[in-house]
Amino acid sequence: MRLKIVDRGSGLLQRAQYAVIRRFVGHVPGSVSATSYRRNFFGKYFARCIQEALRTPDEWTVGELEIVAAFVARLNRCRYCDTSHAAVAAKATGQGATVESVLANRRAAPISTRLQAVLDFLEKLTLTPEEVGPADVKAARDQGASDDALRQAIYVCFVSCTMGRIADALGFELPDARILKRYAWIATTFGYKKLSLPG
């Protein structure tokens, strides 16, 4: 973490919680410290966005939403978000090989044509947002994506593009395989409601 103030936390309560997290997780995830530091400024509200985007399984399963987040992170070349969401997606779906194949070569991945079409849409939205147009929406609809499903995917794109940039700019510490498993368990068990910790 490039900013010491963020790493340290905002108050005594936050620092005490960080000590517990360090003991049980191995380190304080950058996504926790970046949304907890001065949390009333942005982090508390942004953590709610993450929860809404990734834990509203009306149109997509939690596993699919996590795959979308990992896919967008891979396009953004954000290793922290890519590996973290891929681990959560693998845990949520129980199909780590499928998640890996989506990230490596999604055309060959065993996922629905609806999800394939929405990933096509999101690829353009993430890399060249000004080029996305009505024809891209229609192409996704033709493969069965409802407007609500598209809106949810766009929301995931918003949170992943925002958090990925915070992660890369602040230099979040990358979790190793052991810590990733803990991230995956925590995020599938509790979601992101407690991502931003009170200080």
């Binding site: 947002p129 996305v132 929406v137 766009i154 918003f158 940039r165």
Partner: peptide, 16 residues
């Protein structure tokens, strides 16, 4: 970072 996220969010909704 939020500006980059919002740029994509708005472009997506505009396309819809």
């Amino acid at each position: 970072a939020a500006g980059a996220g919002m740029r994509r969010f708005e472009a997506g909704l505009r396309a819809m």
